[in-house]
Design a binder for these strands. Structure first.
Lengths: 150, 150
DNA sequence: GGCGAAATCACCCCGATGGGTGACGACGGC
DNA sequence: GCCGTCGTCACCCATCGGGGTGATTTCGCC
């Protein structure tokens, strides 16, 4: 909000200086006030629209960043995060085991720890909570950028 | 885009009429051009910002409309949609039965039909597909407006 | 070398879940 | 009246999923 006001003030000052630079008094007498004021108004409206668009567009284009703060506060390990991602695919434990190249029993262990740390019971709730904590992207989120740690 | 231009033109015309109504020539002479033009400019910039905000904020805030076309092409019945909604909550069959006021066996029947129609197997996949078809809102979607048949 | 965390796997138990079949009442359309 | 759909419920059965315990290996760290 304060940023908005600041930028607005700066833009206004710039506009005034620009008008001064254009010797607006001369032009106002030359072409007449009836034409000059609408011209200035048009320019200011365009400037305002640009400002408004500029200031309000920022939220929609976030490409999903994993909430690492929540990651470590929960103490999620690498492997638990792996099974979380496999969980989202709708895999059964057996399919997850194949995907991760481990035994189904191992998958079960990781899932149990995952439920424990997320304080949920059941796959659906786990996915729901993981999305709420932004550990994994929600439907419609843009593709996540590649990250060095995987 | 055309709507933008139209609204812009209308707003500009309104501004001109407003200035006319205020007898701007009188005021321009009265308080001086150096003050009058910035005042008009300020007003126009505010108007422009309002327009810009107004015009750009509507695409991201679509309040989720259920895809009724998919609903009927799948042939989902009322009750099947009910269990779908309960499914999203992460309920077990027993909890769903309590929520809907029917027997767990009935819930199982509806769920089986639901899986059949959605061509999935398992709760997670069902929710995923339902979201993809926009039968139910995704995480982060605004609350759905009340619907007479909903 | 010792320690702890992480990862792996096995086993048990039992309730939950998915798949299938059959049945009954209600309701609307022909 | 007959038929199809919907909603409801019951039963069987096989598998899956969640909870718990215990064990081993691997790895980094002190």
């Amino acid at each position: 909000m304060w940023r908005t006001i600041l930028i607005f003030a700066v833009a206004l000052a710039l506009a005034v200086f620009a008008l001064e630079w254009l010797e607006y008094r001369f032009w106002a007498r030359r072409i007449g006030l009836e034409l000059f004021v609408p011209i200035v108004g048009t320019g200011c409206i365009v400037l305002g629209i640009w400002l408004g668009v500029r200031l309000t567009r920022q939220a929609p284009a976030q490409p999903f960043e994993r909430n690492d703060r929540a990651m470590e506060s929960l103490g999620l390990t690498r492997r638990e995060y792996d099974v979380l991602q496999a969980l989202v695919m709708g895999d059964g434990n057996k399919a997850m085991a194949r995907r991760l190249g481990v035994s189904p029993n191992t998958v079960k262990t990781h899932i149990a720890r995952l439920y424990d740390k997320l304080e949920v019971s059941g796959r659906v709730q786990a996915i729901e909570k993981a999305r709420a904590l932004r550990l994994i992207p929600s439907r419609g989120d843009p593709a996540s950028p590649p990250r060095p740690d995987g």
